[in-house]
Simulated scan of single mutants.
Amino acid sequence: MRTRPVLVYDGDCSFCTSSVIFAERRVRPRCEITPWQFADLESLGTTQERAVHEVLWVTPAGTVHGGAQAVAKLLLSAGKGWSVAGAMLTLPPLRWIAHGIYRLVADNRERLPGGTPACGLPPDRRPRPPAASPDIER
């Protein structure tokens, strides 16, 4: 059984990778971080379809939170002022607003700073990046 939550993100997407690097350096979440391309999604209780669609936060008990709620859980795990922001993202109406903003960003990530045209392609059509470290751990 896992003892720490796992953040699963799209390692082929430059915008997603840049966001994770920012979170590691500034937010400092208490979790393991791994691209879905290197994760055992079945053992995490999720699917590739879901991992392609949104960032995922998997609790040690196996509960999977996606999208804006995964971001909220990440912020909550970091403590300090970040946990206040994370808590606010779990409450209506901010929860609903966060979901809409998350979908807007996720659906347009190839157009955002750090994004590349590959971010908008289905996984089976993306160019493969050079080999990278499969896990980024905190």
Rank of each mutant, 00 (worst) to 15 (best):
P35H: 06
P35I: 04
W36G: 03
W36A: 01
Q37L: 01
F38H: 02
F38T: 00
D40T: 00
D40N: 06
L41Q: 05
E42S: 05
L44I: 05
L44F: 06
G45N: 10
G45S: 07
T47G: 03
Q48S: 12
Q48W: 10
R50H: 11
R50Q: 13
A51M: 06
A51Q: 10
A51N: 07
V52H: 08
H53S: 15
E54G: 10
E54V: 12
E54S: 15
W57V: 08
W57Y: 14
W57N: 11
W57P: 08
V58L: 01
V58Q: 08
T59A: 09
G62Y: 06
T63K: 09
V64L: 00
V64R: 03
H65C: 01
G66E: 05
Q69I: 13
K73D: 13
K73R: 15
L74D: 13
L74Q: 09
L76S: 14
L76N: 15
S77Q: 11
A78S: 13
A78I: 00
A78D: 04
A78L: 02
A78R: 06
G79Y: 07
G79S: 05
K80T: 15
K80E: 14
K80M: 07
G81C: 03
G81A: 09
W82H: 13
W82Q: 12
S83F: 11
S83V: 13
A85M: 03
A87I: 01
A87E: 04
A87M: 01
M88R: 09
M88Y: 14
L89C: 13
L89A: 14
T90C: 08
T90D: 07
T90W: 07
L91T: 13
L91H: 11
P92M: 06
L94Q: 10
L94G: 05
R95I: 11
R95W: 12
R95V: 11
W96C: 00
W96F: 03
I97V: 10
I97Q: 03
A98Y: 02
H99M: 00
H99T: 11
H99L: 01
G100T: 04
I101T: 11
Y102I: 05
Y102D: 02
R103G: 09
R103I: 08
L104K: 08
L104I: 04
V105K: 08
A106N: 09
D107V: 08
N108V: 13
R109I: 05
R109C: 02
R109D: 01
E110H: 15
